[in-house]
Computed example of a mutant assay.
Amino acid sequence: MHEHRRDGAEILFLRQDPEIPNNPRLPVVVHRGAVAPDAVAAEAMFRRHGWRPAWRGGIFDTHHYHSNAHEALAVVAGQVRVQLGGESGVLLDLSAGDVVVLPAGTGHRNLGADEALLVVGAYPDGAAPPDQLHGALAERARALHAIAATPDPATDPVTGGAYPRG
């Protein structure tokens, strides 16, 4: 993994994990304190920038990823520790107001959250319904093909600007 900052955001490039492919072209983007701690405000921000709010809830506590869709997660209440990229990945502590953007293929799981945790999830407008994969060897070839075939996000869901590339 290597990291740098761009316009105040943390930019994380994750390596492939033995089970989780991650994304070879696009980084994870972490925006700290990017949105008011309110689900409606997060959904409005996503809509303004071409991302479709799709759900409110928590984050699964098992490694999983979406091979055919990018996902933005806005923490609107509480706090959570997540692991990104699989067992060999990075740990992040996220709090209300933080947004993390996961390119297709990026593994993520909840390592512990307080009872107040509420997350708003969103996908780029026009994205296919996201699949949910867990790192099984049998799914890897199909997942790598789907990740490569998933169009890059047109915008960053927080800034509305261009999504960073590798």
Rank of each mutant, 00 (worst) to 15 (best):
62 T>F: 15
62 T>Y: 15
63 H>Q: 09
64 H>G: 09
64 H>N: 11
66 H>Q: 10
66 H>A: 05
68 N>C: 08
69 A>Q: 13
72 A>E: 08
73 L>E: 15
74 A>T: 01
74 A>I: 04
74 A>N: 03
75 V>H: 05
76 V>E: 05
76 V>K: 00
77 A>K: 10
77 A>R: 12
77 A>Q: 12
77 A>C: 02
78 G>E: 09
79 Q>E: 15
79 Q>G: 13
80 V>K: 00
80 V>F: 02
80 V>I: 10
81 R>A: 15
81 R>M: 15
81 R>P: 12
83 Q>P: 05
83 Q>Y: 01
84 L>K: 05
84 L>Y: 06
84 L>M: 11
84 L>A: 10
84 L>H: 08
84 L>F: 04
86 G>D: 12
87 E>D: 15
87 E>S: 11
89 G>P: 03
90 V>D: 13
90 V>Q: 12
92 L>E: 14
92 L>Y: 14
93 D>Y: 06
94 L>G: 08
94 L>C: 10
94 L>Q: 04
95 S>C: 08
95 S>G: 12
96 A>F: 04
96 A>P: 06
97 G>K: 00
99 V>F: 14
99 V>G: 15
101 V>Y: 10
102 L>S: 07
102 L>K: 02
103 P>H: 10
103 P>D: 12
105 G>N: 01
105 G>I: 04
105 G>E: 00
108 H>Y: 07
109 R>P: 11
109 R>K: 14
109 R>A: 11
110 N>A: 02
110 N>H: 03
110 N>Q: 01
111 L>V: 05
111 L>P: 04
111 L>N: 09
112 G>C: 01
112 G>N: 05
114 D>P: 07
117 L>D: 03
117 L>Q: 03
118 L>W: 04
118 L>V: 14
119 V>C: 10
120 V>Y: 00
120 V>D: 02
120 V>N: 00
120 V>A: 03
120 V>K: 00
121 G>K: 01
122 A>Y: 07
122 A>M: 02
123 Y>W: 05
124 P>C: 13
125 D>A: 11
126 G>W: 07
126 G>S: 07
127 A>I: 10
127 A>H: 12
127 A>P: 12
127 A>G: 13
128 A>I: 13
128 A>V: 15
128 A>L: 15
128 A>K: 13
129 P>T: 03
129 P>W: 01
129 P>Y: 00
129 P>M: 03
129 P>F: 02
130 P>V: 11
130 P>E: 13
130 P>K: 10
132 Q>A: 14
132 Q>E: 15
132 Q>I: 14
132 Q>R: 14
132 Q>W: 12
133 L>E: 13
133 L>R: 09
135 G>F: 08
136 A>M: 14
136 A>I: 09
136 A>K: 13
137 L>V: 13
137 L>I: 08
138 A>I: 06
139 E>P: 00
140 R>V: 09
142 R>S: 13
143 A>S: 13
143 A>P: 02
144 L>H: 02
145 H>I: 10
146 A>D: 14
146 A>T: 07
147 I>P: 06
147 I>F: 08
147 I>A: 08
148 A>F: 01
148 A>G: 03
149 A>N: 01
149 A>E: 13
149 A>Y: 00
149 A>M: 04
150 T>G: 05
150 T>F: 04
151 P>H: 07
152 D>H: 15
152 D>N: 15
152 D>I: 08
